[in-house]
Amino acid sequence: MRQYLSKRIFSSILAITGLFVMVFFLARLTGDPGHLYLPIDAPLEVRKEFSEKHGFNDPIYIQFGKFLGDLTDGNLGYSLRKERPAIDIVLEAIPVTLSLAAVAMSIALVGAIFIGSLAAYRPNGIFDRISRVVSLTAASAPDFWVAITAILIFSVSLGWLPTSGIGGVPYWIMPIGILVIRPLGLLVQVVRGSMITALSSDFVKTARAKGVKEKAVIFKHALRNGLLPVITVAGDQAAAIANGAVIVETIFGWPGIGKLMIDSIMQRDFAVVQASILITAIVILSINIIIDIAYAVLDPRIRHK
């Protein structure tokens, strides 16, 4: 197991490196930042000076070399727009996104386990049928539309919740609510499927023949076995949110990593784009490693491989 994990970490580092090289070159394909940062009528000398100052005139391999040199010093560059180190800006944004992701995924996971297990207990029963329709709807709801409609109803018409911004609990309700919907719908379906399999397996028969109570049969014997596929999908969804809940962050004005990334791409603020991609990549790869560890914790057969 330990060997497996160190292998995973090593390959993650390789992946980040590859990603980084790609991002560096792709970002520079979007055009000359001078066009965006300087007034349209800026004289040629000013443009030249701007490019020279930021090193945009050098051949691209020299820019890359410089970038790598800075990187080894832990320097991810300077934001053109905000004139602060890029890494600082990114590190301010990432906790916002991560807390959104963590809260939303916890709610989705707990809710899905509960609803999915009950649905699986009597497949095609009334609860199962209702939860199937609702979860399918939830899994396929377009979040930008739900978000705007929710603002219209709860903020504009009823005036219960603030339209946007960050602050106390009321500010969290709508963004979290929107973020939960899709993973919840998806996870309910995954939990239902894997719990139907788990509940019909032989060891459940053994548990019942031992006189174990139904509640323990479902939530102890079957669930531990049914969780493995759920973890995979949940991790995937968590990664998707961590990757930037772009729509939710934009609509509700949350200064998270998704919003930051979109803004800095629009502004050709290369250093910030690079820094946010690096940090997000690290987060996502960490989530994957956590999933691997969760697998091993849940299933001794994987632990002993």
Binding site: F203, T206, A207, A209, D299, P300
Partner: peptide, 16 residues
Amino acid sequence: AIIFQDTLSHLNPVFS
């Protein structure tokens, strides 16, 4: 009490 045939599938794989 009952003893089953296929013990690998009848014992819960994730508990000692």
